Amino acid sequence: MRKKFYISTVISVILISCAPNKEIFEAERFADFNNLTVQKAEKLEIDFGSKDITPSRGVSIGESLYPNKNKYKLATPKTYQRIEKNKFNLETEYFYTSTDSLVRVIMYEWTELQGKNRFDSRKTDTKKFRIKYDGLKKQLKSKLGEPSFIEVASDTAKSNFRDGIKWLNGNENKAYLFMLGSNTSNYRKIRLVIYRE
């Protein structure tokens, strides 16, 4: 009886941890990326209950995250923020071309939820970040196949690290998933960049 309870608990935790990722891989944003307009993205974010936090001045994205081989002139990204499952603060940026409103890059960033007091010193739950990172990696592998590049630094880093995985093959979506952290302060942040050249 205990074994059944343990197995059902483990399965529930896995399903709960993967559920929020479904939104990222919905057809409107992932499979049909070529037709995603900033207006469609805005509607999706409103449906999710996100808050519009688009900056008033220009924000760019570095070539290490998005090579921009076609030299698109990107507008200030539409940016949204929401709380994901009471575990993470999720910020999503939609970089688009203003001439046709097509989204060229989506960047997701998961950070620790902040307490009511900005001096809140709650310890970061590094395990939930690892579960989130591994869940995203698994789903990206199922959508894009084997990655082209893997770097794991968290196991050996004495302090700051970046674990990264890139999917750069084929003519479909490209992705770069990485986790930034510190083994001394337990700081963690996950970013996922999805684009198509």
Rank of each mutant, 00 (worst) to 15 (best):
R2Y: 12
K4C: 15
F5M: 08
I7W: 14
S8T: 00
V10K: 12
S12R: 03
V13E: 00
I14L: 07
I14A: 08
L15T: 03
L15S: 13
L15K: 02
I16V: 14
I16Q: 03
I16L: 12
S17P: 06
S17V: 05
C18I: 08
A19P: 03
P20R: 01
N21R: 04
K22V: 13
E23S: 14
I24G: 06
I24N: 01
I24Q: 02
F25M: 09
E26L: 12
E26G: 02
A27G: 10
A27I: 05
E28L: 06
F30T: 00
D32H: 09
N35W: 01
N35Q: 07
V38F: 01
V38M: 00
A41N: 10
E42F: 05
E42L: 04
L44I: 14
E45Q: 05
F48V: 00
G49P: 09
G49L: 01
K51T: 06
D52E: 09
I53W: 04
T54H: 00
R57N: 11
V59F: 05
S60Q: 07
G62T: 14
L65K: 09
P67Y: 05
P67G: 08
P67K: 02
N68Y: 12
N68I: 10
K69F: 14
K71Y: 10
K71N: 09
Y72Q: 14
K73C: 13
T76D: 06
T76R: 01
T76I: 13
P77N: 12
R82E: 01
K85L: 15
F88E: 02
N89G: 12
N89W: 01
N89T: 07
E91S: 08
T92D: 02
T92S: 02
F95D: 03
T97F: 04
S98F: 04
S98H: 05
S98P: 06
S101R: 05
V103L: 03
V103N: 08
R104K: 11
R104H: 06
V105N: 01
E109R: 05
E112L: 02
L113A: 03
Q114I: 00
G115F: 14
G115R: 12
K116Q: 05
N117A: 15
D120Y: 08
D120R: 11
T124W: 15
D125H: 08
D125M: 05
T126M: 11
K128C: 08
I131L: 12
K132A: 10
Y133A: 08
Y133P: 03
G135K: 05
K138I: 07
K141Y: 08
S142W: 15
S142A: 09
E146F: 10
E146L: 13
P147S: 15
S148C: 14
F149K: 15
F149L: 15
F149Y: 15
I150S: 11
E151K: 08
T156G: 07
K158M: 09
K158P: 11
S159A: 11
N160F: 08
F161Q: 14
R162S: 04
G164W: 03
G164T: 13
K166V: 12
W167H: 13
W167F: 15
W167N: 02
W167G: 07
N169P: 00
G170M: 07
G170P: 13
N171Y: 01
E172A: 05
E172L: 10
E172I: 06
N173C: 12
A175C: 13
Y176T: 08
L177S: 09
L177I: 03
L177P: 04
F178H: 09
T184V: 15
Y187N: 04
K189N: 12
I194M: 01
E197L: 13
